[in-house]
Every structure is written in C-alpha cells, then in structure tokens.
Design a protein around this nucleic acid. Structure first.
Length: 647
RNA sequence: GCCGUUGUAGCUCAGUGGUAGAGCACUUCCUUGGUAAGGAAGAGGUCGUGAGUUCAAUUCUCAUCAACGGCUCCA
C-alpha cells in the first residue's frame, strides 16, 4: 500500500500502481470524468500513469492551468494525427501548448507539399472525427538506442535531433489511434475530451527559431472541452480587435499611412498631433524638473560618426542606405546618441558639470524588415523620448534610481500597473560579434546595474543575450489592455561609446576620467506609446490627452449664439472645444459624440440659455446634471492641469 | 527577409468571364427636435498596380506593391 496526500492534507491509502484517475474515481465519478492530468510530487503526469510510491497528488482539470496546457498539448497530437492521415510521410518537429495566446501549435516538414488555410477546415473535420473515437493516449518507455534506430529507419532528422539531447532511460512515446510520437508528455486520458476545435492559422517558422535553418510549416489552433467556451473565446478575440490601436487610430483620426509615403511611415493627423504635443509637454516638464537640458540635433550625419560609435558594423542592415553628397556618405540617424555625445564633447567638462543630462524628442529612421512592421508599434520613422546622462561611476547609482523614479511617475499618470523590468545581459559567446569585446567592462557594468536594482527593491528578471551591443540594458515590458506585450522603454548603460568617442571629464584630482552613459527613454517612442495608449484606454483618453475635450451640442440652432459664447469661454480657459452646429436631433449629436469618445458633451437648450448654465454629459457615463459655466470650466481645468486619469 | 491570407466607394462589406452593389459617412433640401441613429434626393469606384490568356478580365494566370496572421529581428 502507498500513501497519497491530497491538497487538503488528507492522506489516503491505495495499492501501489494506482493511477490518479483511480484516486479520482474513489472520490467521485463526477470528478473522475473531469480529470485531465495530475500533479504528482510537483510534476505533471498522465492521469493514467501508475503511481508506485508515496506521493502528494493534485488532480488537474480544465480549471487548472496545467490541466489546460495538457489538454492543448494533447490537441496538438490530435492535429498531428489528422495531418499525418492527410499528408503521409510528414515529419514532425515539436507541438507545444501555449498559454498566451491560448492553444497550441505543431511544427512540421511537409516536404514539397504545401498547406494552405483552405486545408484547415478539412483538418478540423478530421480532428473532430478522430476526437470522437475517444482513443486513449498510451505512454510507452523506450531505450534510447531503440528510439534512435526507429527514427533512423524513418529518416526523421528532426526527431533524431530531439533524441540527441535526451538521456537514455527517460525516453517516452505516446500513441493515440494510428499516431505515435516521441513525447515526454503528459497527456489527457483520451481524445474524447476534445469537443471544440478551431485551427486558427498556418505560418512558416524557422527550425529551432534560426532563420538560417529550413522553414517548417506551423499550424496554430485552440481547443475546448465544449463548444460554448470556444464561442466565448472567439467572441473575446472579436472584442480585442475593436480595441486594436490600428482600428481605433483610424476611427479616431489619430494617424494614417499611405502607399505614396511608404511602409512604416506614419502620417500623424490633427487628433494624433494633439496627443503628441501633450506627451511632449509632459516629458519636457518632467525632464526640466529632473535637471535635464534640452537639445536639438539634425536627422542625418556622416558615415564616420557611426563608424566611431560602432553602430554601423552592427546595424548597417537596419539603417536606410547612405546618401552621397560632396563625396561624403550621409546616413539618416537611427539613434540620437552619437549626436548627443558630440554635444557633450563640444565643451570641456569637469566633475562639476556632472551629471550632464541632455534630452531630445529625436526623430530616428530604422529600416525595419518589411515583415516586422506593425501599425504604430513597429515603424520606420520614430520619435524617441530620448536622453543621455553622462555621469561618474560614483553618481551612477543615484542617476539610475532617478531614472527609475521617472518611470514610476509616468506609470502612475498613465495607470500602468502591470510591467516587468528585464535586465538584459550580453552573451559571452557572442563577444566581438553581437557585443563589444570588453569582458571586464561587461561584468563590471552588469554587476553595477544588478546591484542598483536589488538595492532599490525593483523587481526584475534577467535575460542573457538581450543586451545592447555597447552595454547591459533594462527593458520595461508592458501589456496593452488586449494582452499584447511589448517593450515600452529601454534604459541602457553604456561603457563602450564613452571610450569610442574619447569622452572625458576632468575629475577633482585634475585628471581626465571616462564617464558612464545612461541611455533612457521612459516614454519609448511617440509611435509605440500612442499605440499602447489607444489600446490601454480603448480610445477613451483622459481629458488632458483627448484630442477634443468638449463638444457643445445645441438642441437647435436657436441656441447657437449662446453655444458660441460658451465655446469662447472654454477656449479662453485653454480647453479644446467644438460646437456640433449641424441641424440634427440631439439624440444623433450625442450618439456621434459618444462614438468619437469626446470626454465631455455640453447639451445646451432653452433652459440652459435662460439660466446661463450647461447640461454636462460624460462620455460612457451619461448625464451628470446641470452646472454653471464657470463651475464647469474650473472643474475641467483642474482635471486637465492635474492630468487626472478620468476614472 | 521567410511562410500563409487579403486587396471592390471615405468606412464596413456583398458580387460577377460581358466594363459594379448595400449600409453608414458625405452634399443639398425639408425638419428646430431635450440625452445613443428624423425624412427625402444626390454625388461618389480605371474593382491595389503591371503584364498575360481570351472576341471580352474587376473576375482566370503570372509578376509587383501594400496590409493582415505567424517566424526571424528590434541600437
């Protein structure tokens, strides 16, 4: 007999070889019907795998993340079974479950054959047929030599590659129906659990994620234990689409693009420009308070600048090609730092000038690959909330913390509560290729940054091989309201460029000393940040950012004079205001104002005019009642000046 | 850059081997209406671009450009 400890602490005794499913049955039949897998001593197992020693056991159902992941991974095997029946001879790579986006994929090599999206419907049908058979997922252990022999005979280089990284004695196969796959598992008991299937798309994916390798075919899908959940999932995706910044950006007249201008080049329309100017105002105030000085630099520079900075060898491919003028090559700048370094270097610096902080909303051009372009999030012309801080080693920690405080301040204003700081380090194996070959300086600066992060109690994760070529960086990952993750800002430490530019200041021993540089861009770029804000606020900007803050809606044109009067007063108070002077009914004016997400609507009719008041309506909230004009003005002014979130 | 999909009016989308349609938006007129769509009329498209097949191409084929879903990449 063995002891099984359940999550509530209860210990039950079973025969050795009992399965999680048996345990579930001994508790209740209903539970047993829901069990997808089990957590045995902290490891996720098949519910049908015999347990031969004392164990703690948690039964996993659809309500558990691991239950869902097991379900989706088993669905990937079901997909593979359907594909193999349709394309005999197909070779499979891996088919993992995904938490976000939900579902799974399977990568495969179809040889000369092509899989198009039209095939997905056929595959779904086949998967449904196979699922209905309720075939069990059967686990089998196999010695490595036998497995190697098996796949060698099949000529399956992919599975042989997987095997080469596996230890003998830990190799398992799973079979359901006619399909057998090398797989560490676990799986759900049988295919019958899978009731609702949606294959979402087919895509190319490089083998092992390396573009030098062959491109495999990847099929994405998602499955559920009932149709209702699939329908809900699809409805949720539809909802998310409505919040997509590209859709909102068009609807709200924020930006546009045009074939004659070029891909990835944003045309900011008047509404978007208002937001840009408000953001810059915020940044300028904040940076002024934090002791930055502003600078302005040109959009181009000679080749030599980028040879000095070291950018050209690393990033030539993603810069626009050079223009030749007077026998000189000029590049569009892809970053502002070299220009700023020249400003630092224009006048001799002493330790009394340090830290030296210069800021610019710099316009940069990057030749992002065509497939990378994505709405406002990845573009070829961007406006960066850039600044460089030149400081001594001793000042580094305080400066770094001040930068972090600035991030926090912004997060608060914009209501960003979910973010992760990622400490991106170099990869020692790629020194001299992707990273400047200065191992000691890498170590020193990475340690410095880590220490500051730890000492400041800033939560962070470390990632190797994500650093900038000139130093470690901190990336701030944020999530838009529709779950899209991206890097908002990077904050980098640079030990390389001060050396390549020969930057120095005179220290208090009257000796030249090399400064450290902090590159920072808390608001990222206008493009990416406004893209984020559109999704974050679902287009309902707080009043201070809203392109149009107030729309005056006269009941009829009899009240137009009073409306213009109110408009004049609001304008004088610095409010962005317009009158809807069309001869439409008030219901229609309200509807359209609501849809255009103007924060405040002022309804003006007979009553308001005679009393010298306003009926105030808040977007999304409805009628707020009647206010005197002056009352409304002082309240909205406060809301704007304090940059209230509007909640 | 690679794999897949899409491209018809300002927007959302029908449609066809015989040179195009709806709703909304727009213009004009009527209506002057109190908190999410008042009515009528009108205007608007070389069917992304180029080539090929055909008596005839928006429709079929190829190329190209762009967007979208992924992969790779992001100083």
């Amino acid at each position: 007999m063995i002891n099984i400890t359940l999550p509530d602490g209860a210990v039950r005794q079973y025969e050795s070889g009992v399965t999680a499913l048996d345990v579930a049955k001994s508790i209740s039949e209903g539970l047993a019907r829901k069990v997808l897998a089990a957590n045995v001593n902290g490891e996720v197992w098949d519910a049908t795998r015999p347990i031969t020693q004392d164990a703690t056991l948690k039964l996993l159902t659809w309500d558990d993340t691991d239950g869902k992941l097991t379900f989706w991974h088993s669905s990937a095997h079901l997909l593979a079974e359907a594909i193999e029946s349709m394309f005999p001879g197909v070779k499979f790579w891996v088919g993992p479950a995904l938490e976000s986006p939900k579902g799974f994929y399977y990568d495969m090599d179809l040889g000369d054959k092509k899989l198009t999206e039209d095939d997905l419907a056929t595959l779904e049908k086949k998967m449904n047929e196979l699922a209905k058979k309720s075939n069990s997922y059967v686990r089998k252990e196999m010695p490595k030599a036998e497995a190697v022999q098996y796949f060698t005979s099949k000529g399956d280089e992919y599975k042989l590659d997987l095997l080469s990284n596996l230890e003998d004695g830990k190799i398992t196969f799973y079979t359901q129906g006619d399909f057998t796959d090398l797989c560490r598992g676990p799986h759900i008991p049988n295919t019958g659990f899978i009731k609702a299937i949606k294959l979402t798309n087919v895509a190319g994916a490089y083998w092992k994620g390396d573009e030098k390798n062959k491109q495999l075919t990847r099929v994405y899908g998602v499955t559920f234990p009932n149709q209702k959940e699939l329908d809900e999932h699809l409805a949720m995706l539809e909802e998310a689409k409505k919040r997509d910044h590209r859709k909102l950006g068009k609807e709200l007249g924020i930006y546009t693009m045009n074939d004659d201008i070029g891909p990835g080049l944003i045309l900011w329309m008047p509404n978007g420009t208002v937001i840009i100017e408000e953001l810059e105002k915020l940044a300028k105030e904040t940076e002024e308070d934090a002791g930055y000085k502003r600078v302005v630099t040109p959009h181009i520079a000679k080749e030599n600048l980028y040879l000095t900075s070291g950018h050209l060898p690393y990033y030539a491919d993603s810069m626009f090609p050079a223009m030749e003028m007077d026998g000189e090559k000029y590049y569009l700048k892809a970053m502002n730092c070299p220009h700023h370094h020249k400003i630092f270097d224009a006048e001799p610096k002493s330790y009394r000038d340090m830290p030296y902080r210069i800021a610019e909303y710099g316009t940069c051009y990057r030749y992002e690959q065509s497939g990378e372009l994505f709405g406002l999030m990845r573009v070829r012309c961007l406006h960066m909330n850039d600044a460089h801080i030149y400081c001594t080693k001793e000042q580094f920690a305080a400066e770094f913390r001040a930068v972090n405080d600035m991030y926090q301040k912004y997060f608060k204003i914009f209501g960003i509560d979910k973010y992760v700081m990622r400490l991106s380090l170099h990869d020692p194996e790629k020194l001299g290729q992707k990273y400047v070959n200065q191992p000691e300086l890498w170590k020193e600066t990475e340690d410095m940054v880590r220490t500051v992060l730890v000492e400041s109690n800033i939560p962070f994760v470390e990632v190797k091989g994500e650093g900038a070529f000139y130093g470690p960086k901190i990336d701030v990952q944020i999530w838009s309201a529709i779950g899209r993750e991206f890097t908002l800002a990077t904050n980098q430490v640079d030990f390389a460029q001060p050396r390549s530019f020969n930057l120095s200041f005179t220290n208090n021993n009257n000796e030249p000393e090399i400064p450290l540089i902090i590159h920072r861009a808390p608001l990222g770029t206008h493009e990416r940040f406004i893209g984020f804000l559109l999704e974050h606020y679902a287009g309902k900007f707080p009043v201070w950012l809203a392109p149009l803050q107030v729309k005056i809606l006269p009941i009829s044109d009899k009240f137009m004079d009073y409306a213009s009067d109110v408009k004049k007063k609001l304008k004088k108070a610095g409010v962005r205001v317009e009158i809807d002077d069309r001869s439409e009914k008030i219901g229609k004016k309200i509807r359209e104002a609501e849809l255009s997400r103007v924060p405040y609507m002022l309804v003006i009719g007979e009553k308001e005019m005679t009393e010298g008041k306003l009926s105030v309506r808040r977007q999304g909230k409805g009628d707020l009642g009647v206010l005197a004009v002056e009352e409304f003005i002082s309240s909205i002014k406060e809301e704007i000046e304090e940059r209230k979130s509007g909640e």
